[in-house]
Design a protein around this nucleic acid. Structure first.
Ligand SMILES: [Zn+2]
Ligand SMILES: [Zn+2]
Ligand SMILES: [Zn+2]
Ligand SMILES: [Zn+2]
Lengths: 144, 144
DNA sequence: TAAACACCCTATAGTGGCTATAGAGTCAAG
DNA sequence: CTTGACTCTATAGCCACTATAGGGTGTTTA
């Protein structure tokens, strides 16, 4: 299987596959005579694993850990559980922050009556309120 | 006011202030004899505006737009309202995605009984389900 | 006067998870 | 034998910063 077919099978672009190889998540595949990467079902499974994890917004580092547990099974689920638990916390704490932002944004939208000399939204944003910084220990990302 | 004081007043690092200048969000300030940037209250207000917007997770591009409306007031709130509305949509769509991920993650955690030969969590992640890609038109970021 | 120290300057590279581009090679079909 | 689809490598860009190196400035203290 060449990279294009693997990409089509996994819903993933060839460049991304090469990137995962570079990042040490996918094992380096053998090459054909013409220097093309040649993949097997094992690669496909592993890539699907990665894509499933990415679809859950795990970081590549978290995925690296899970793959490591998979490659060196210890019969102990506790580390896997801890990782999943930690990632649930990443996601849920990000949700909380975003919900607070949403509340503030809705309140901000409310401020505009359309009848002011200068829009109240801009005035509100100019006001120097105690600004709450976003927590940076969570890795679950931004809205843009 | 030198950059350190401005940074302290706005809860923002000096490097970030220079970055905003470079990015065209803060006007280039005059320099002192010793080539230090010298800021005024006007700079402080503008930087507070930017930080307030960033605290709401707006992108620098969105902030650029708002600053532009502020610098060229048209008496028309509709563009400002549209921008805020669009950003609320960025945030809320990100929240929806993350809530779905959270549900899946909780279900995933549930799978581990601690009694399997190989952890069911890894098996579930290996399974090649139809993977739902995250929408990429929203700019509100990731959990990590 | 000199040394220490806090602050400031520029320039460059790194972060994460890709995407985009340039320039070249491979391979099957017409 | 040329076209076209695919592949290769290497490099740069995206966002909003953060980190580092290597130097200059300015005040305080020994
Ligand atoms: Zn995580
Ligand atoms: Zn208004
Ligand atoms: Zn937005
Ligand atoms: Zn288990």
């Amino acid at each position: 299987m060449k990279i294009g077919e693997l990409a089509a099978r996994t819903g993933c672009q060839p460049v991304t596959i090469r990137y995962y190889e570079q990042a040490g998540l996918l094992p380096v595949p053998p090459r054909s005579e013409g220097n093309y990467r040649v993949y097997t079902r094992a690669h496909e499974e592993r890539l699907l694993f990665i894509r499933n994890c990415r679809a859950l917004d795990m970081s590549l580092e978290e995925i690296r850990q899970l793959l490591d547990y998979q490659d060196n099974p210890s019969g102990d689920c506790s580390e896997i559980n801890a990782l999943v638990e930690a990632h649930i916390e990443h996601v849920s704490s990000r949700i909380k922050v975003l919900q607070q932002l949403q509340d503030k944004l809705v309140a901000l939208r409310q401020r505009c009556t359309g009848a002011e000399p200068s829009c109240s939204i801009l005035q509100e944003l100019t006001a120097g309120e105690p600004h709450v910084s976003q927590d940076s220990d969570s890795h679950v990302g931004h809205s843009h």
